[in-house]
Design a protein around this nucleic acid. Sequence first.
DNA 1: GCGAAACCGCGAACGCTGTTTGCAGTTTAC
DNA 2: GTAAACTGCAAACAGCGTTCGCGGTTTCGC
Lengths: 229, 229
Amino acid sequence: MTGAPRDPADGDSAGRSIWTRPQRGARGPAPTHSRDEIVAAAVALADADGLGAVSMRAVAGALGMAAGSLYRHLSSRDDLLDLMVDRCVGELRPYPADGGTWLDQFLLLARRQLALYLRHPWLPDAIARPTVPGPNTLAHFDACLRLLQPVRAGVAAKFEAIAMVTGVVSLFARSAAAAGTVTFDHVDLAAYPHLAAAFAEPPSTPPDRDLFERTLRSLLTGLLTTDPP
Amino acid sequence: MTGAPRDPADGDSAGRSIWTRPQRGARGPAPTHSRDEIVAAAVALADADGLGAVSMRAVAGALGMAAGSLYRHLSSRDDLLDLMVDRCVGELRPYPADGGTWLDQFLLLARRQLALYLRHPWLPDAIARPTVPGPNTLAHFDACLRLLQPVRAGVAAKFEAIAMVTGVVSLFARSAAAAGTVTFDHVDLAAYPHLAAAFAEPPSTPPDRDLFERTLRSLLTGLLTTDPP
DNA sequence: GCGAAACCGCGAACGCTGTTTGCAGTTTAC
DNA sequence: GTAAACTGCAAACAGCGTTCGCGGTTTCGC
């Protein structure tokens, strides 16, 4: 007979999130697949065909298990996405050690972040969702705060700056992924004189090789250096 | 008898998009609902309960029609979202007339954009999707290019700047909408010394009242003024 | 050692989604 | 006046996230 025992996948009423939930119970048989295996399979699926390809049935199928079985390890697909995000954010380790300007260090981390988002093009979308920060995300935040230690600004301003940098990196990653996607073909530009003029111009020089660095540099100095503590 | 006539909702093989498709045929009875009515109902739904509430059945239900009937006017839900975006972008009109620095003018437009995104919190998400630009979006682009006319920079750089501003405005809108949502409660901060120190500090002064303007100003000057043509 | 409790994986279901399709009924063109 | 074209509807389809009850397996307490 099976009663109504504690389901480890439950929210547990006290707000037990995926980060504090034990990976397996202490009583039953060992799970045939670990949580890490599941998350890794999901990340592989997302890397290959985007976030939309990460369906419970697809993830389960990739591991040779039934869709419903996933709910022994996770309580929802959102949980899975949170785990995927945190797993990939972990790839940012190790964080830059001290040495150099705080700005240079921060830009180095931002570059690594951009590379990460290009490696996992679905990450910006997954992060845009309301997310419960996991250990790796917290560690990343912590590292950012450490780099910003020499900056004389309030914590609120620092948090804003960190969030803004993450957002701008996402923008760069998205625009890089969407390069060549947007097309103005088959559009009658007669009603848009400035657009027409812009397209009539000879293709100007590509804006800048280091647009990324210049953008973030001006952004960070603007946000943090002129702000009184 | 009903053969296989040209379905106006078809992509039409020649890439006939939603923007070039006629609103109604020339032969049958008049549609009981116009395309604008449908889009308006969808926008109302999204404003009230988010993009997720914009299902074909919900939109159709709000207008007292069947779900399938929507496909007489649109060829997909993506089409509907494109129409919604362009409809709301139309609220940016009229665009700032000449008078003042180009930067001031551009910031004024950006402010209106931010207000728009706060009025329709789903807009950033709908815009993040790959989208076919509609007439209002094109007009907005055109207006941006007009404002940037006095700037000596290549068109590519201007396009980058416009996209970046739109993106940053989206970031501000999102962070404003998510204010108070993110919580670090019930998290063991022992392993994250800098995070712990940050929360231990007395709540510092709110970073800045005009963070928005300062950010965009430093961003735009960084992107456009130091760039050789 | 043994019973009971807890846990795992499975398969079938539920309600929801976007979309397609045949079927009237209505309007217009020729 | 007939035929073509169009509209709307109801039903269906595949896929989605999620739930539930079921045997089989492992571990705890005695």
